[in-house]
Design a protein around this nucleic acid. Structure first.
Lengths: 334, 334
DNA sequence: GCGGATGTTTTTAACGTTCAAAACGCCCGT
DNA sequence: ACGGGCGTTTTGAACGTTAAAAACATCCGC
């Protein structure tokens, strides 16, 4: 494998000149630059990243902890990772994967990766309501950016990128309204989740704005499962609420709603319009297809990388992006 | 950030002695070792991985190309990545993610990552029938291991780990047989795929072994979609084959089968037993749950890492692992 | 008490790169 | 012709680690 030294010898210049040809070509006389570039190409030279990193103390690697939460399969993780990788590569960086215990127990792992200089910083996801990671990392001075806001934290928790869940729910409500629904229910999670409150708030506010009823139309599911979605839908129907629309907080809950509707001989998209969240692969797999709110993954990833690698200090950046309503059969005009 | 030098000064030994304390502690006198370790702990020293890699020319990083095939969402990718990470970490290594064009066009990317010393080797997945990557990497002398056999290649294509699809299908057939089914159909893909032939062969052979009919019971779907699975199932039913079991080559096709059965008022698991492949999140999400063949991800990942990092040369290793039948409602006794 | 074997520690050099400073070469104005 | 300024190139040192060899210490048998 060729080194700078060998290229330098071949081009009959000093090592530093070859280095400059790569990192500051404007400093070279055009004819020298050309000669050096020829040698580089001829010897098929590639800079050794380790040597470079040792000297500059920047590894151009970004850590991402691959989540492993048993009950919560991360259905759009492959999309997210691909987008994140692509965005990182656009800046000459790469993504380093690792595993760590959830919450504060994982912090030593983060610290270690940073201290041993395996990564420059971290992208966090699966942010929790009182996520302890943000404060800890900030305290240690380790660069990071979070996909997902930290809800309910007094101190400024650091830079983040997130999708506007309230706006998403509002879009779903308006869409159902425009297709003729007037009694739109909401399937959510228990109150403890900031994300859940955000999305529920969007439903509530938009219903109010449109003059639609909300009383008794919001159901909290105990967990994010198909069965819970079905159970909640059954409860709504049994209570005689005469609902004609359902905005679900997740695709999984929405699928549960679809199942219950089908079981009762109702047609989703006909008698009752249903929408989900995240536009997971599941949404495209059922029949009728599930209308859902797509997260703009490419945009999210680009912003994450920009914030992490761009802003060197001070002012924590925050970016709230809009989801996109992907309309399928489950919300066809009633 | 503390360095070897500072630790050495603090412990009043040479730099090399501290290095030995970490890499070859048996060479130190017990009292020296203890003194050095105390200093290491006190100064919170962590070896700089870049400097180490520069010296030893091993980066302890394994490249994995995150797939982005539009039509084929990788439903178990998060499981795979988590297992792969965990297995790598057990040997002190990590996974570096990158993107690359599919097929031979991606090879320069692989070459570059290796030449710049960002990775020691690669784990390949999404192996195709005539995958060009294996031959290319072998030619370049770049270490790799493949998740998935390379089908139909004359030259020995290199080390791999794979799941025994034929055995999986056979397990599914036997399970359906044991629950009373006697006319078991197979939903597959077009002939071009080695994986498809493998799984189809298992169905055929096991049916023959059990004395079950196969003629006219195998359908090739045009693509891996829910609609195709439903269409194929409809075709089987319309042809009056009187099937009471369906072994599908994928969970998606199996879900299509379930949908068609439901549409016709048949109950999966009651009149017709259905099985899928890969035990994706989808399998647990439908009702009744889909019986499916789980890939032993942890085992797969462990073997991949062992082969990639263990065997230094020569004899290409090959490992064929057995899938596990996860029984759910879709194959309940008829 | 001396050569040799063994065990522990230090010295020297190197991995491949970049930074900072020095050196060189050239043109210009005076 | 000489000093100053500028553009280009080279020199020397450093990043933090480990491999190899050298140095030093200790113990043993005879």
């Amino acid at each position: 494998m060729a080194t700078l030294k060998q290229v330098a010898a071949h081009a009959e210049v000093s090592v530093q000149t070859v280095s400059n040809a790569l990192n500051a070509p404007h400093r070279l006389r055009p004819d020298t630059l050309e000669r050096v570039n020829k040698s580089i190409e001829l010897l098929n030279y590639r800079p050794n990243r380790n040597a470079r990193s040792l000297r500059t103390s920047a590894v151009e690697l970004i850590g991402y902890c691959v989540p492993n939460w048993p009950n919560q399969t991360h259905l759009v993780m492959d999309q997210f990772l691909h987008a994140l990788c692509a965005a990182a590569e656009r800046t000459g960086r790469h993504i380093l994967l690792f595993t760590a215990p959830p919450g504060i127990d994982g912090m030593p792992t983060y610290d270690d990766l940073h201290a041993r200089r395996l990564v420059d910083g971290f992208v966090l996801s699966q942010t929790e309501t009182h996520d302890p990671r943000h404060g800890w990392l900030k305290e240690q001075g380790i660069p990071f950016v979070s996909f997902g806001r930290v809800w309910k934290q007094t101190t400024q928790p650091g830079p983040w990128v997130d999708v506007d869940g309230a706006a998403g729910s509002a879009m779903a409500v308006r869409h159902l309204y425009e297709t003729g629904r007037r009694r739109i229910a909401f399937l959510g999670w228990p109150k403890t989740s900031g994300l859940a409150e955000d999305r529920a708030g969007g439903w509530r506010d938009e219903c109010k704005a449109l003059g639609l009823p909300i009383s008794g139309l919001s159901v909290r599911c105990r967990e994010d499962s198909l069965d819970e979605g079905a159970r909640a839908t059954a409860a709504l129907l049994d209570a005689g609420r005469e609902i004609d629309g359902i905005v679900a907080l997740s695709d999984v809950l929405a699928l549960g709603a679809l199942r219950e509707l089908t079981r009762r001989g109702l047609t989703a998209g006909h008698q009752v319009g249903v929408t989900g969240f995240d536009d997971s692969p599941l949404a495209d797999v059922v029949s009728p297809g599930l209308t859902s709110l797509r997260q703009p993954m490419d945009h999210i990833a680009a912003e994450l990388i920009t914030i992490l690698t761009g802003a060197p200090d001070g002012t924590p950046s925050e970016r709230l992006l809009q989801p996109e309503l992907v309309i399928r059969g489950s919300s066809a005009p009633g």
